[in-house]
Amino acid sequence: MKAQTQKNELKAYERVLLARDKERPNIVQYISCLFDSFLELSGDRIAKEDASVLGGIGFFEGRPVTVIGHHKGKDLEENLSCNFGMPGPEGFRKSLRLMKQAEKFHRPVITLLDTSGAYPGMEAESNGQSTAIAENLLEMGRLKTPVVAIVTGEGCSGGALALGVADKVWMLENAVYSVLSPEGFASILWKDAGRKEEAAERMRMTARELLEDGLVDGVIPEPEGGIQKDPQKGMEEVRKAIRQSLEELDGIPGEELARRRQEKYLHIASCSAPGQEEA
């Protein structure tokens, strides 16, 4: 699952900017391109509808799947209505509800990650942000149905990971995935948010670095200049990645999938992993 080698090597922060680019396709475009007859489903059944997480059921190449992902919105109006893709606990609970539903009806789950993080607000904290994220992590880890996650843009912090525990984790070539933004990293560790480019280089947040580190399973190639330059072409690569993952996971019983995923995550990012022995 190696990415095609490209001649032009972008700097890590250039990829951060590509990943955040407003012209980059968002979940709505992925859904309309890759999933037929999509039915959006709403609400966490407890408190409210959180539009920063979009989810529903559709056909992928003729088979029903559940699709869930962050929704940042295209313009300011949409940004505001979906809170810039930053979920509160209700968004995470909605996603968990849809995942359990997918498990019940033997549908694979496809998640699309694109968020600058969980929403840091008073209401989110008051309504159990931590627990909502934690329960998602736990339950995704033992879902008895295939789970494929794709980081399409910005995969940042627990807000991204809460939709990202999967049998196969893909990243688009210019997507980034990190514990926090390079700006936040620089400001916390160096007290200087201005050193964001340097932080991005240091953090190992690009797709190919994370593939090397064994933290993601594959890189999806993008057209020159990013998927925003030729969305149709880029989407075909995403389609191939989903197809390949589902073919690999098909036929594995649910219990076995859950057991393997649990094993994967019990040993992910481990100090005893190859290449990670203490220097």
Binding site: I133, E139, S178, V179, Q262, Y265, I268, A269, S270
Partner: peptide
């Protein structure tokens, strides 16, 4: 929170420890 000096490795510990509790619950 997360040990930022370990980059995404630190974030993945959230999934790891949650998986451990999943196993413990079972």
């Amino acid at each position: 929170g997360a040990r930022m000096q370990e980059g995404l490795f630190s974030l993945m510990q959230m999934a790891k420890t949650a998986a451990a509790i999943g196993k413990f619950r079972e």
